[in-house]
Nucleic acid binder design. Sequence first.
DNA 1: CCAGACGTTGTT
DNA 2: GTCTGG
DNA 3: CCAGACGTTGTT
DNA 4: GTCTGG
Length: 635
Amino acid sequence: MCGRTAQGLVTVTLITLGTGSSLHENDAPGQIRQQLARTLPSKPADTWIDEDKYRTSYNVAPTRYQPVVRADPQTKSYVVHMMRWGLIPRNTQSMPEYSSVLKSINARDDSLFMGPSGKVMFNHSKNHKRCILLAEGFYEWRRRGKERIPFYTRRRDGNLMLMAAIYDVAKVKEEAEPMYTYATITTNASPQLDWLHDRMPVLIPNHDHDKIRAWLDPNLKWNATLEAMLKPCDEFMEPSLESGREPVYALETYQVDEKVNSVRNDSPDFTKPWNSSANKKTLNRFFFAKTEPASSESPRPALSSSASTPLKKDNHLKHKDGVNDFNEPFDYADDMTVASDSADNTVKDEEEFSQEQVSVAADDSKREEGFAEQQEQRQQGRIALSASGEDNDDLEDRELALALELSHQEQANYQPSTSPLTSITSKPASSSSPSTQIISTPGSTADSPTRSAPRTMQVISSSLTGSVDLLEKRRQQRKQEEDEMKHILEMSRLEAIADGHEDVSGEDSSQDGTTTSALSFASEVPPLWNEENVQDDLKRQEAEELEKAIAASLNDSTTAASPTSSPSYNNHSSLSHPKRPVQSLSPTASPRKRKTTAQSSPSSPAGSSPMKPTKKSKASQDVKITSFFQHMSSS
DNA sequence: CCAGACGTTGTT
DNA sequence: GTCTGG
DNA sequence: CCAGACGTTGTT
DNA sequence: GTCTGG
């Protein structure tokens, strides 16, 4: 999971007036700084480490460098550090084999757990070198047989995603400088995303200073609290602390262009809904699902099977042989200017779409059944659709549609905070009290009239070339986006009223012009881990230890976790997934059998291992791996 | 004490 | 480096 | 994560 | 099939 991300912040090419020479100035770091300043408990240092390694890209693969936030014990502050994706253990001497490194682009959450499932390899990192990967989103390929369809997931508010990660430093012979590398942490996919994949990255809520602080605290050793953070936390209580609001689903996921498959392609389009004219219709209904007037019945899947069909077909369009479809050399090393600016990529507006409103009453009823069925299954822990037959395709299509719809329903309460690139200027609440509080009757996903939260398909213009006009251009663009958003919100609000779902009481206090969520948490900022905090940490650690001991003595079993854990909104019973049953903390339950050391019985040096008959693989690989973990003498 | 292992994902 | 197994 | 390659000897 | 490159 999560083998690809986007670092798509705008690259601006400035033309130096006087000389006529042009220089590239990558503004992305600036934007990230801005966001971080609002997000972290404490503003990070102004200077990045290895900032020059930053590359704007919408298709970031393992082994590439990405910005990571970590604590800097020296300066006692946060720093952004460009690190290489793919953890190389600190004790590595020579460059590890690919087969070894690559696979450490991720670290399973249960590999960090205390207890038997915890992997030694990560011990150092999990205790002292936790960090947060900054990305705009991640790609995930949904597999169906041999088919792989790319989907992109990002925060609905367009802010950076904070992905829990660990890093390490290795002095590799071949490299002059010590290598900083990292791995993102994965966990069971949340119910909202498990239709796509069974794993997902651990995300940290942008507003949760406590979590952020704890995660980045280099003096805080691994404990139950940290461990409790490793959950499919993809939903937040936005401005939650107050009244018991419904959790807000923070993510959105949609299909994207297949061209993203190849790491040699790069385009901002990859982070936008797959936008060929061929499936605009589909998108329309996907993003602006309308409630049929007569809808008294259940939710209406935004995707009809008929719509998903072309979607599937078109997906098979091959690239032009060997040619980069963008006709642009996207050479990482080359230059940071990403071509392909497409102002008209902006998805028009809802009007254009609404005209196409397709009524699919016919199959709707059909689907209705299926939907109920599916939901039933999902709730019970889902079933692998009987594997066989062409019917499966249909089924799966339907499942996808339903799953998407389902996940959209979870997003009913969306309220935009800041638009992606805007930021800073917290716009006054003005007319923006579209408290589109569409009451989603909790528990009954089934009967709340569907209303996919309005989705902006705002286009983040990629590279603008030209001069200072750019700024103006962008400003206007933002405004346009905002207007669009307002419009959409207004529309949906009206609908809500019409449907009698307007949340009257919800004239939320946000009226006072208080900016966005983050601020409400920033009240008091004694963040970081100064010495006194260390004391606290130690105390906490002791407490944890004690707790652990007690738990252990009480004959282990469950519950050992999350004492101080925040709210209860992430109690995703990571259900189903037959493959990997939820890892209990119980030391007795070790789903993944530790590599049996037995095989290396003294009597049989090699070859005779009673291992799986899997080709040469295991044995030879082990040899390789071993060679990378040769001890070093130095500290 | 020393020796040896140290990873994830997907698929069946 | 650091933990487990023997 | 997906795409793409998958080899050696000898000569300049 | 399996490994490497990006």
